[in-house]
Design a protein around this nucleic acid. Structure first.
Lengths: 226, 226
DNA sequence: CGCGGCTTTGATGTTCATCAAGTAAAGTGG
DNA sequence: CCACTTTACTTGATGAACATCAAAGCCGCG
């Protein structure tokens, strides 16, 4: 990554409308951080001090419910922002974020973002749109999951990884069976059972973390019907 | 309601930061509409042309899934905006909105809002915060519902009406049993069964649409545990 | 090399959806 | 305003879907 945001190849389209003074502000209040797999970026309850952009890697956004149960709210892939959900509504994070593989982050001071929002209406509008889109997607995912049975949810999550994250019918699952369960409100045993069932029925090929979609149409049908 | 937004008693705090030119813009591009119970305000797929504020009444935001099944996403009560969820991310609504009782709306042209966002950074920031808050709440509700069993969900929804909407332990249910089911992903029969169960156990008093919480502590416990 | 967490399968019980059937309430057209 | 139709409400019975418990093999890590 270059020293200068203006020419950074990882830059989000969000910042396309900034002027030189704003570029300079941004550039002076940011830093890059590398995190190994399994690092906690922040926890629910931590004060919000930064605006965080994922350059490389994969993150999970989650919360801890009750005693020791975790509920995964979403997966963030590169070129996306995290914690965008509540940086403007609260002073502390409502969800935790952890890396699920080696990741690189660009961290910008939140006050700088606020300042630029106030100075630059175009930027504000773009940010509004972005937040809106992210929230729509998250909510839609939750609503869909609610309506599906376990087979449907399992199909849905495989398709999500294949289409949205890896853009391939063949990929390595970045998460454990347990984490899949936490992501789609199931029990680990049932995730395993249904994955085995899909394999037995020739819908997917799966061996450990390696997964390949063998019968896409059927998987889509299960995801939609279930 | 007065002719002038600046002195309107129903005005949202969102607009506190506007200057005279902006007030005038706002005032010239709005209209008030009264709708009887059961009216459709807009449907999923309709083009987004307005920014709608609820002055009086109660609305439900919902979507139609599959053939004829409806899923209610949320309830909007006065002094709140509707469709704030995706007015900046899409050109058409992703959810439908209908009145569940007689309601009065203030309808503002969406282009005016966009214009003011670009002109006034403070307003943009306030709007960001508002959207963020609404989205947080919606998502949180969904995540909670996912984790609860049917008794827990039923308790949750009773408490939601009592605390958030009516601010009283005694109120008239504005929705049918069927709509409650659609709101918390249950079947109508089970909503009825569990309400009867709560009555039998002395947790609530219920007769038709009239409901009174008799044992708040127990209801809260069921909502949290379930 | 041993411990703890992940994975897998089977057996069992609980929760919930579905079907059925009847009553009550509310809207509709003559 | 009344007969009629539809929609809401209610209870019971049944089976399917799912959670839970148990047990054993696997794998990575200190």
């Amino acid at each position: 990554m270059k020293d200068n945001c203006e020419v950074c190849e990882h830059r989000s389209y969000l910042f396309d409308d900034l002027d030189p003074a704003e570029w300079s502000l941004l550039n002076n209040s940011r830093k890059e951080v590398a995190c190994k797999k399994g690092s906690i970026i922040y926890r629910e309850g931590d004060p919000i001090e930064n605006f965080i952009y994922l350059i490389k890697g994969l993150l999970k956004v989650f919360r801890t419910v009750g005693d020791r149960k975790e509920q995964i709210i979403g997966i963030t892939d590169p070129m996306d922002f995290i914690g965008l959900l509540n940086i403007f509504s609260k002073s502390t994070y409502i969800y935790s974020v952890a890396t699920i593989e080696y990741s690189e982050l660009c961290i910008i001071d939140i006050e700088t973002i606020r300042k630029i929002v106030k100075m630059n209406g175009r930027f504000a509008l773009t940010l509004l749109e972005k937040m809106s889109l992210m929230n729509d997607r998250l909510l839609e995912t939750r609503l869909s999951i609610n309506l599906k049975n376990l087979r449907g949810r399992t199909a849905y999550i495989i398709l999500l990884f294949a289409r949205d994250i890896y853009k391939s019918n063949r990929f390595e699952l970045p998460v454990s069976r347990k984490e899949i369960a936490e992501l789609i409100d199931m029990r680990t045993e049932n995730v395993i059972r249904i994955l085995s069932e899909f394999r037995r029925d020739g819908i997917i090929k799966i061996e450990g973390k390696n997964i390949e979609i063998a019968d896409l149409q059927r998987l889509v049908r299960i995801s939609e019907f279930g």
